[in-house]
Design a protein around this nucleic acid. Structure first.
Lengths: 173, 173
DNA sequence: CGGTTATTTCAGGAATGTCTGAAATTTACG
DNA sequence: CGTAAATTTCAGACATTCCTGAAATAACCG
C-alpha cells in the first residue's frame, strides 16, 4: 500500500492518539492503515509500509484481533495471511467503547460492590466515606445500565434520536 | 487521614485504573483519597498517608488542578494549603469526559478536517481512501455534536431521560 | 520427507514515563 | 529585613512499556 502524505498524516495522528488510549503506537498505526486501505494487506506489506519490525506487526495484529477490529482473509494461490479491518466506523467505535467499558468500568463497579459489601462489617471507616462509595456505585450502575440500553437499540433508531438532539427532552418532558 | 482497608482498596484500584486512563498512578491515588476524604487534606498529609514523595504530591496536585478536579482552601491560623476534590460524582465524570474529548477527540476531528481539505488538491491518494476519511469526519462531527447537546441539557432532564432508557424510542418514534 | 515460505516467540535493548530527594524558590510572620 | 515553614523545580534513579532481530515453530509444496 502506498503511503501518500494524506494517508501518512492520518496514520501518524492515529498512532499518537492510540498511545493515549492505552494501545501502543504500532497497534494504532496498523489499525489506521488497515482501516484506510481499500484492500486487505499482508503483514509483510504493513511492516514495510510503516517501517516497523515484522515481529512487531505480528503481535500488534494479534492484539487487534482480540479487539475484534481486524480479521484474516486469504486469496487463492497465496498462502500468506491478508488482514482486513472493520470498515464500518460505527462498529469500530462501539467495539472500542465496549472493550473499554469491559476493561475499565466493569472492574471498578465490581470493586465498589465488594467495598460496599465489606462496609457493613467495617467499623473503622467513617460513615461519610461509606456513603460516598455507595453513591458512586449507584451512579456508575445507573450510567452503565443506560449505556447497555442505548447499545441495545437498533442503529437507525439511535441515529434518529441523536439527530433530534435536545428536542427529545421537550417531546418527552 | 486514616487509611482503613476499605479506603486503601479504593485508592489502590483507582490508581491502577488511572494508569489505563493516561494519568499516573500517583495522580489517580491522590484523587481517590481526596474524593473520599470528608475534609480537605494537606500535601504533607497526603504524602504520608500514601507513602509517596512530597514533591510527587506537589506535581500531581498541580495536574489535578489543571483537570479542574481539585481546588485549594485554607484554614485560619494555618498557612498550609488544604486540598479539596470535587465531591459531586456527576461533575467529576463530566469534567473528565470533557477533558478527554478536548484532548483526544477534538484534535482528531481537526486533523480529519485538514485532510479532507487537502484531499481536494491531492491527486495521488485513491478516492476510496478520501471517501473513508470524509465518512469518518462526518461521523465524528455527528457524535461530538450530540455529546455537546447532551452536555448542555439540565441535569434533571438528562437524568429523567436516562431513567426512561429505551422507552424514549417508543415515545418519539 | 526435505526444502521453502510464513508466522510466532522471546530475550534483551531502546524509549518513555514515573518517582525521589536535594536544592531553590516562594510565602508569611516576627 | 531575617528567618522559618511551605511549596516547587529538576536531575537523575527507577520502573515500565515498546520494539527489534534472531531463533523456533508452523504451514505448505513437490
Amino acid at each position: 500500500m502506498k503511503l501518500t502524505p494524506t494517508i501518512q498524516r492520518c496514520v501518524l495522528h492515529w498512532g499518537e492518539m492510540g498511545s493515549r488510549w492505552g494501545v501502543s503506537r504500532s497497534v494504532a498505526q496498523i489499525h489506521a492503515l488497515l482501516f484506510l486501505s481499500p484492500e486487505p494487506l499482508t503483514a509483510d506489506g504493513i511492516a514495510e509500509t510503516l517501517a516497523i519490525a515484522r515481529s512487531n506487526v505480528s503481535v500488534s495484529l494479534k492484539e487487534l484481533q482480540t479487539w475484534d477490529l481486524v480479521s484474516i482473509t486469504h486469496v487463492i494461490g497465496d498462502r500468506r495471511d491478508y488482514f482486513l479491518a472493520r470498515k464500518d466506523i460505527w462498529e469500530v467505535l462501539t467495539t472500542i467503547m465496549d472493550g473499554r467499558k469491559r476493561r475499565e468500568i466493569d472492574p471498578t463497579v465490581q470493586m465498589l460492590r465488594d467495598c460496599a459489601q465489606e462496609a457493613k462489617r467495617d467499623t473503622e471507616t467513617p460513615d461519610q466515606v461509606k456513603e460516598r462509595i455507595a453513591t458512586m456505585l449507584e451512579f456508575l450502575e445507573e450510567m452503565t445500565g443506560w449505556y447497555d440500553q442505548i447499545r441495545s437499540m437498533p442503529r437507525p433508531t439511535l441515529l434518529k434520536l441523536m439527530r433530534m438532539g435536545t428536542r427529545v427532552a421537550k417531546i418527552v418532558g
